Amino acid sequence: MYVAVKGGERAIGNAHAFLAEERRGDPGVAELSVAQIREQLRLAVNRVMAEGSLYDPDLAALAIKQARGDLIEAVFLIRAYRTTLPRFGGSVPVETGQMAVVRRVSATFKDLPGGQVLGPTFDYTHRLLDFKLAAEGEVPVAPMALASGGPVPHVMAMLDRDGLIEQEPQGAAVPPDLTREPLEMPAGRPLRLQALARGDEGFVLSMAYSTQRGYGRTHAFVGELRIGAVAVEMEIPELGFAVEIGEIELTECETVNQFKGSKTEPAQFTRGYGLVLGQSERKAIAMSLVDRALRWEELGEDFTGAPAQDAEFVLYHCDNIQATGFLEHIKLPHYVDFQAELELVRRLRAEALGQAEAAE
């Protein structure tokens, strides 16, 4: 229960003005533009788009600026804005096999059709501060084009040809839409993947790390990690076929996991899958590890009690917006509630003291 505070509206208005002043910073320093954020803080923009469930680099950059760099607050802004947008329909599933890749690596096969494409990555950089960046004004030029010459096949197809990896079900029903329907348990794999795709990167990373340390018995290899642009198509009823309406950047990760078989499945490799908006390979890899850990029941494995195997624990706690709302609401006025508890503690202490005196 909250109570009114005299002058509260004026105080809130002043707080908003103070926030705007803090957001701007020193007026003597050039203002950071949305275009600069979009182009130079692209990984932050990608994270906000992924966890906000909306692919729009300009809006994500604007949200980051408005949130003063607080990415969870920026995600909140994007999700709130998303609810105001009209829905014209659904696109057809994207063909990641037709992706124009800028990065594509595999930890399972050295020689791949289409080759390994390192692309823009921190993997081989020295973790040392580059003070040349502080000088500003430099325009680095890549020595050669980073994108592949065309679509490249999935690595998993090499294992699939030999029947060494589980078969993906075909003709599955249309999955529920987590952005329009609340999460319910038990959740099937399509719904779990949606929740993980827009889950907090830090939480999903922590869960994935736990599986690697033995909490979930998931020993995985990155079968393939690819980043690039894919076409988005939408079926137009009046035309009778799908037309391309744009393209988006995606990060896709498929992991290969050891599987000795169970009562219901033969010995084979199994899959973990991650697909994230933008370039976000850490999130995609982590997502694929957690996806595999959550599949223990459908593969006939034993539940070991690992947190990453508990779908209810993972899915209900990976959403940073829900977590933030529940956590931060405790800083709002709870004067009446606290006074009630304060009186209770005082009464209990008084009763305890009275009993002690009576015993003497």
Rank of each mutant, 00 (worst) to 15 (best):
G8E: 13
E9K: 12
A20K: 00
G25L: 01
D26F: 00
Q36A: 15
E39N: 15
R42E: 08
L43F: 05
A44Q: 10
L54R: 11
D56E: 13
Q66W: 08
R68W: 04
G69E: 01
A74Y: 03
A74P: 03
R79K: 14
L85N: 08
P86K: 07
R87Y: 11
F88G: 09
G89D: 11
S91K: 09
G97H: 09
A100Q: 13
V105T: 10
S106H: 05
A107I: 05
L118N: 11
F122S: 13
Y124C: 09
T125Y: 10
D130N: 12
K132Q: 13
A135L: 15
E138M: 15
A142F: 09
A142N: 10
L146D: 10
L159F: 15
D160S: 14
D162I: 10
G163P: 06
E168M: 15
E184C: 13
P186I: 13
L193V: 02
L193N: 03
L193E: 03
A195P: 02
L196H: 04
G202A: 06
F203Q: 05
L205K: 04
S206I: 00
T211L: 05
G216S: 04
R217I: 06
F221A: 11
V222P: 08
L225C: 13
A229H: 14
A231F: 09
L239H: 04
A242I: 06
C253W: 01
E254L: 12
T255K: 01
K263C: 02
T264M: 05
Q268K: 02
F269M: 09
T270W: 02
G272Q: 01
G274V: 00
Q279P: 00
R292A: 04
L299I: 07
L299H: 06
E301M: 07
E301G: 02
T304G: 08
G305H: 06
Q309V: 13
L315I: 12
C318D: 05
D319N: 14
N320M: 15
Q322M: 11
G325K: 14
F326R: 14
A340W: 07
V345P: 00
E351C: 06
L353Y: 08
